[in-house]
Design a protein around this nucleic acid. Sequence first.
DNA 1: ATAAACCCCGTACCAGAGTACGGTGTCAAG
DNA 2: CTTGACACCGTACTCTGGTACGGGGTTTAT
Lengths: 133, 133
Amino acid sequence: MGNHDLTIGMLARQAGVNVETVRYYQRRGLLPEPDKPLGGIRRYGAGEVARIKFVKRAQHMGFSLEEIAALLKLEDGTHCAEARAIAVEKLEEVRRRLEGLRDIEQRLRQLVSECGARRGNVRCPLIDSLRDK
Amino acid sequence: MGNHDLTIGMLARQAGVNVETVRYYQRRGLLPEPDKPLGGIRRYGAGEVARIKFVKRAQHMGFSLEEIAALLKLEDGTHCAEARAIAVEKLEEVRRRLEGLRDIEQRLRQLVSECGARRGNVRCPLIDSLRDK
DNA sequence: ATAAACCCCGTACCAGAGTACGGTGTCAAG
DNA sequence: CTTGACACCGTACTCTGGTACGGGGTTTAT
């Protein structure tokens, strides 16, 4: 775990992101920037790979980088209530978005089917629904 | 319908958007820019109000401004099949997003409940799920 | 006739999550 | 010892849908 032998390019490849993304995460404070040793080339280890993967997993759960920064501060696993609070908020947000998307799905499904069933020169139901009610 | 008596500010108020938004839509080609008459103040009518409302309704159905521009070209209602094709694609996209969000909701719900049920010094289930598998 | 309110136009800026570019430095192989 | 690949760093640009700003010109009301 402590072997610091990766260059930033290797780190990026192992974590499945671009070098620029690694640097971006460093700037955002999601990834510590190791001290530059003599010569000027930094080395990274398994800890950094894991951290980037943590970020990517959290993104797939819908968290923003800002929220992920907060989660990373609780990474030792001893602040479960705080972590849970962040997840609860995200869950509520996800549910709101789900509701909105479900409405949209419904309306689109309805309109697509009406447009498909249209016969003769009836006006387009989709276009009509967008015009003044 | 043909009374062109609104200034851009009145148009914006009637359509429920900002003046800047009207100009932005003009730049994006969603709204025609009327000829500037003597003196330099353009006038707008009910057609423009309707057009902005069309855009807003379409946005609420999940369409991007680019897609809305395509829909506006079909606004006469005689190109139902083309309009339907755009809606079908959007519907598919919405369903993909819905699927993704449902997965996220599920996982978050599960994790929130696990974190809530946690007793003693078990590691935080949420944080754990973000760390290496 | 003067002040408030409004218009015109161009440009710059916001969030979010990166991506791209360009100049310089360093390292390893041939 | 030179070539190529990579690292470092700062800055700028991408996309989307606007919002803000600033310097003029005009119109409306008092």
